[in-house]
């Protein structure tokens, strides 16, 4: 990592991201040629094509990319926080908490921005619960934290089943969306992009400190890192990112787990590189998965969570089997 220029892989990833975004805009259940799309992008040509590209494809592709980037970065941060490559918002029950709150809000008839608020509340509550309960005599062991997270995730699972059981039938389809992870209902990608940009700007200056934190809190403190502040800071940012990702696309699993892990295998362990690389490749994965989801058996549409899990589970098992965890 020392001798190679760290910006090279990032430049490559930016290029791949642009290519993925453009590719996804050209794909859809209505087949448009490259020329159709490019003239529509320049606001020329058929009104219908302009509508398809500007009103349907671009917002959805943008939402997909931002969701993937948020989840991957949240996963990367949590893995540092817990010093455990198995940590991700999904495994730790943070997206579960967000889903339960959103479902509860739908149950009492809320919609729109209140749902985003509920998701954030749920994500934060869940993280506080996980981190609070896993502390004993002021010390948190990563194993204890992970176990607490897994158990709390199971608890949220039960709450979700309960809410689904008591919910009026007309609210069930909307609720299932949150649980499956689906970009079909993503109304606006802007909140996700704003949060992504904001969090990136906040977290990147600390990338070097995060490298130290990855060696353990005591070692980090001995090297002059403000561990208490940094851990809280990372924790809040990771919760925020998870919450926004959940409000945009529901709970999409495995992205936050698999992507940072793959990036570490390929690019090493420098967070200055891993964090932006995770964001970019997470964005690519979800964008690509969503493109598959909306075209592969069109007109039937699949939830994107199905595709990410189908890609994620075997990849994860493969990595686990190679003994890299």
């Amino acid at each position: 990592m020392l001798h190679r220029s760290p910006s090279m892989p990032l430049i490559l990833l930016v290029f791949v991201s642009c290519a993925t975004l453009l590719f996804s805009i050209t794909q859809g259940s209505v087949s448009l040629s490259i020329t159709d799309v490019s003239s529509a992008l320049r606001s020329q040509g058929s009104q219908l094509y302009q509508t398809l590209v500007w009103e349907l494809r671009i917002p959805r592709v943008a939402a997909a990319f931002a969701t993937g980037a948020l989840l991957s970065m949240a996963g990367a941060l949590m893995q540092i926080l817990l010093r455990n490559p198995l940590a991700d918002p999904y495994v730790l029950g943070i997206s579960g908490g967000a889903s339960v709150m959103v479902l509860g809000a739908i149950l009492v008839g809320a919609s729109g921005i209140i749902l985003s608020g509920a998701a954030f509340l749920g994500a934060t509550l869940s993280s506080l619960l996980v981190f609070g309960l896993s502390q004993r005599s002021g010390q948190t062991t990563p194993m204890r934290l992970l176990l607490t997270g897994v158990v709390i995730a199971a608890g949220w699972g039960a709450c979700i089943t309960l809410i689904l059981a008591i919910a009026p039938p007309q609210k069930i389809p909307g609720m299932l969306f949150w649980l499956m992870g689906d970009l079909a209902y993503a109304h606006s990608p802007w909140l996700a992009w704003v949060v992504l940009a904001m969090v990136s700007m906040l977290v990147m200056p600390f990338a070097k400190s995060l490298n130290v934190l990855a060696r353990g809190p005591l070692q980090a403190a001995a090297l002059g890192v403000n561990v208490v502040f940094l851990e809280r800071f990372v924790f809040i940012l990771a919760s925020l990112m998870t919450a926004i990702a959940v409000t945009t696309a529901g709970s999409v699993g495995f992205v936050g787990l698999v992507i940072p892990h793959m990036m570490r295998l390929i690019l090493g362990n420098d967070q200055r590189l891993i964090l932006p690389a995770s964001a970019l490749s997470g964005g690519c994965l979800v964008t690509f998965a969503d493109t598959i989801a909306r075209t592969v058996i069109a007109p039937e549409q699949l939830p994107v969570g199905v595709i990410t899990a189908l890609i994620g589970v075997p990849t994860f098992l493969f990595l686990l089997n190679k003994g890299r965890m």
Binding site: G28, S29, V30, L48, T51, L52, E55, L56, R57, P173, L176, D182, A184, R294, A298, P299, E300, Q301, L302, P303
Partner: peptide, 19 residues
Amino acid sequence: IESVGSPSRLDLERLVALK
């Protein structure tokens, strides 16, 4: 008649294209 997906998950693109 052309289908635009399942009622709970519509293929909006195809639907809009049918004008």
